[in-house]
């Protein structure tokens, strides 16, 4: 986690906080609730804001240090917000052999960011993932979960334009 991301203003709404409270209530007292709660909290906020982690820590009686250890261990969790459109390029074996590395390079140069970053206007974020199970369409990428397959580097601009 790079330092510039630490001071992200918290923009959680009361509705989101209410949802979080309900979520915690559902899991309180069950066996090993931490990871499922974090997963669904991330669904609510789009990432895991510090404030949410503090609430989870207090309510579930788990230390913030332990939560931080868990959050940073799993690549699924994010401590910073993603772009409005989150692009994820598959670098699984099937996709890699079919040239997904070039797609990734092309996206980095087209967006002017490196993997793991977000464009300045907050529109696009870029990350790599490993096999979404659509190897039949390799190479693939997803934009907010929507799959684009059988890619070639020259299709990238056109796809980005769909999300302008």
């Amino acid at each position: 986690m790079s330092d510039e991301r630490i001071n992200i203003p918290y923009r959680g709404t009361p509705e989101q906080e209410k949802e979080l409270a309900e979520l915690i209530a559902r899991y309180k007292g069950t066996k090993s609730p931490l990871i499922p709660v974090l997963e669904q909290a991330q669904d609510i906020f789009g990432y895991l804001p510090e404030k949410a982690l503090k609430i989870i820590s207090e309510e579930l009686q788990v230390s913030l240090a332990k939560i931080y250890g868990v959050v940073t261990f799993y690549s699924f969790f994010s401590l910073y917000p993603k772009g409005k459109y989150n692009i994820s390029v598959c670098l699984g074996t099937a996709c890699y052999v079919k040239g997904s590395g070039q797609i990734y390079d092309k996206l980095q140069s087209a967006l002017g960011i490196t993997g793991g970053q977000c464009t300045e206007d907050g529109k696009f974020s870029l990350e790599a993932c490993r096999c979404i199970g659509a190897c039949g369409l390799a190479p693939v990428m997803t934009v907010n979960g929507e799959v684009h397959g059988r890619l070639t580097a020259d299709m990238v601009d056109g796809i980005l334009a769909q999300y302008e």
Binding site: S32, L34, I35, L38, E39, Y74, S75, F76, F77, R130
Partner: peptide, 19 residues
């Protein structure tokens, strides 16, 4: 699972289920 390859290993998987 939350995106960690090692969690496919049996003992790691169990530690992960334990939270």
């Amino acid at each position: 699972g939350a995106g960690a390859f090692v969690c496919g290993e049996e003992t790691a998987l169990m530690t992960s289920i334990e939270g």
